[in-house]
Design a protein around this nucleic acid. Sequence first.
DNA 1: GGCAGCATATGATTGAAATCATATTGCGAT
DNA 2: ATCGCAATATGATTTCAATCATATGCTGCC
Lengths: 188, 188
Amino acid sequence: MLPNPYDLIPSSALRPISGAIGDVVFHQGDPTHGLYVVQTGRVHLERVGPNGERFIIHRAQAGTSFAEASVFSEVYHCDAVCVEAGVLIRIDKAAVMAAFADPAFARAYGRQAAQQIQAQRQMLEIVGIRRAEDRVMAGLVAGLLDGSVVEFAARLQLSHEATYRALRKLVQDGRVTNPCRGIYHLRP
Amino acid sequence: MLPNPYDLIPSSALRPISGAIGDVVFHQGDPTHGLYVVQTGRVHLERVGPNGERFIIHRAQAGTSFAEASVFSEVYHCDAVCVEAGVLIRIDKAAVMAAFADPAFARAYGRQAAQQIQAQRQMLEIVGIRRAEDRVMAGLVAGLLDGSVVEFAARLQLSHEATYRALRKLVQDGRVTNPCRGIYHLRP
DNA sequence: GGCAGCATATGATTGAAATCATATTGCGAT
DNA sequence: ATCGCAATATGATTTCAATCATATGCTGCC
């Protein structure tokens, strides 16, 4: 694993927060305290439309951070709601700001951010592919099928049925091997 | 406009590169020189699949950067091909690495990266919305309709016809106003 | 002025993925 | 062992966006 920039933040700037389901971690417009790392559970970031519709702008999984931009902002720009109970770590924005003076932190942060941006761009390209078969193939090339097919399908924004069918088609066309139930590999 | 981190890089580290259509800026496996900023033209980043299929992993527009992660890598992990003639600026990776020692650069970089990550996450959520009407509504809430409807539709990964129909439906349902041809606003 | 070209718009048809339904397999708990 | 449950897998039907077609308004150009 690459150096996690947040390991370089003094622990005094870290605050564990336990979130029950439905808990609002912060509200749109609240003054920012800092960014969050999800240890366990899941958090949704939501923006409220003019007529009260709630749009999810991000689903933060365990092991990921969210509200990174709040470090550079005076107020939060969305709501954060705990949708699965767990523990979050809040990292104080002043500590992050200060840490940028440490070149080791700055480079670790830069590296992580650059890789995340690259990965997200790739995901945007992949989910933009219309044909299920092509999308599944692109997902396989990108190495997105590491866990279950159901999870793979969710990442591809396809129904798992459509994903199974596309996989079968790719196997029939000889582009993919299916050595055993649930396992698919690109034919070299 | 927020401070562009690359303005803080000494100009000696910048190299303008003119690209004709079809020019390969770099190949997968080439040793990295640095990242690129597209001044004019367009560049596709492509990864080659095991059977020679080419998957576009990013389309870089004028005014955006690409291959940022190459600063932290020994070799490029994809091909960069100029699909519209223009001028690129290459920023030397050593200069970027060195610049992270400057807290002002580090913070500017961090801010830009955090905002880009946030924007990309939001785009991923939006293009993941199945119903054209909901997707268009989310796009409007996100402020994605600044230029033409055609451009808006492309951002949403929808056909412009579907986008027009969704907009009309939203107007009929009173959720959006259409003060004049081509202009749509959220009803407050 | 008149023409070309593009954005805007909307109707008709088609196609592909979502959805619904139904088995089967594999695995952990009791 | 067997019960229950989730993942795997595939068939049938429906839905809805893409596509094709057509028309109009607007803008720049000669």
